[in-house]
C-alpha cells in the first residue's frame, strides 16, 4: 500500500533520514518511535509530500506521492497547527475539509454527533481556530483527518496535549479503525499509547530504522530497554 524506496532526506551533508526499503501493507497500523530529532516527522512529511526527497521515492497505492495528487483523496492527516486554517471557526474548517470530499454541512453535523465524546463546547462555540487551546486544536486536526473516512491515516504525536479521557477515546477509535482495515502511521513519544494501538513498531535513530517488528511483548521490552539505556 505504501512503499518507501531508497528514500533519503539530507540538508547539505547532513542526512536526516535514510530508508532503503520499507513496505506498509494495507490494514497495518504503524507506530513510529524514536527520540527527538530521530526523523519521525521528516518521514511523515515525506510521506505527505510536504518536503522534497533528496533521493528515492514514496508511493501510495503504486503512485508516487510527489507526482500524483490522487493519494489526497483517501488520506487523512494531521501533523501540526500548520494544517489548520487559523481564522476559520472549527465548524467552518471541518465543513471546508468535508466539502473537498463531497460532504455537506449535515454530514459534518452527523460526524460531530457520532464523535461527540471527543470534544467540548469550546469547539462548537463561535471561536476561531487560533483562539483554541493547543489540545482543542489537536482535536480539530484529528477530527478533520477522520471526517473524510480515510483509507490511510497519518498522525504526528496525536496524543500530545490531550486530556486522559480524550487519549482513551482516541485509542479506542484508532483500534476500531484498525479492525475496519484502515492503514495508519502514527508517531508518538509514549510507548504505552503506541503499543496499545499499533500492530507494528518502527524505531528510528538518527534517521535510520533500527528496529522494525510486530507489536509483541518482546518488542515492548526491547523498546523499554532501548529508551532506558539511552
Amino acid at each position: 500500500m505504501i512503499q518507501f524506496s531508497n528514500l533519503k532526506k539530507a540538508y547539505g551533508p547532513n542526512v536526516v533520514l535514510s530508508i532503503a526499503d520499507l513496505t506498509i501493507n494495507k490494514g497495518e497500523c504503524i507506530g513510529l518511535v524514536g527520540n527527538n530529532g530521530a526523523g519521525k516527522t521528516t518521514m511523515l512529511s515525506l510521506l505527505l509530500d510536504l518536503i522534497e526527497a533528496s533521493a528515492g521515492s514514496v508511493s501510495s497505492k503504486g503512485e508516487l506521492v510527489s507526482k500524483s495528487d490522487h493519494w489526497k483523496t483517501y488520506t487523512g492527516s494531521f501533523l501540526n497547527e500548520g494544517f489548520l486554517i487559523p481564522f476559520l471557526t472549527p465548524i467552518e474548517y471541518l465543513e471546508f475539509i468535508g466539502g473537498l470530499h463531497g460532504k455537506n454541512s449535515s454530514d459534518v453535523k452527523e460526524f460531530l454527533h457520532e464523535n461527540a465524546n471527543f470534544y467540548t463546547d469550546d469547539i462548537t462555540a463561535k471561536k476561531y481556530l487560533r483562539e483554541l487551546s493547543a489540545g482543542n486544536k489537536n482535536k480539530i486536526g484529528i477530527l478533520a483527518s477522520l471526517l473524510i473516512k480515510p483509507e490511510i491515516l497519518i498522525l504526528d504525536e496525536p496524543f500530545a496535549n490531550l486530556d486522559p479521557s480524550s487519549q482513551s477515546w482516541l485509542k479506542s477509535k484508532l483500534k476500531k479503525l484498525r479492525e475496519n482495515g484502515i492503514t495508519a502511521v502514527i508517531s508518538s513519544h509514549d510507548l504505552n499509547h503506541v503499543t496499545e494501538v499499533c500492530s507494528r513498531i518502527l524505531l528510528l535513530e538518527d534517521g535510520i530504522i533500527v528496529k522494525d517488528k510486530n507489536n509483541t511483548e518482546e518488542m515492548l521490552e526491547e523498546l523499554e530497554s532501548y529508551f532506558t539505556l539511552i
Binding site: D69, K72, T73, S77, G82, F83, I85, P86, L100, I148
Partner: peptide, 13 residues
C-alpha cells in the same frame, strides 16, 4: 503561509 501545508495535503487542486 500559516496554513500552506493544509493546502498541500488536502484534496485541493
Amino acid at each position: 503561509s500559516s496554513f500552506f501545508d493544509s493546502f498541500l495535503v488536502n484534496k485541493i487542486s
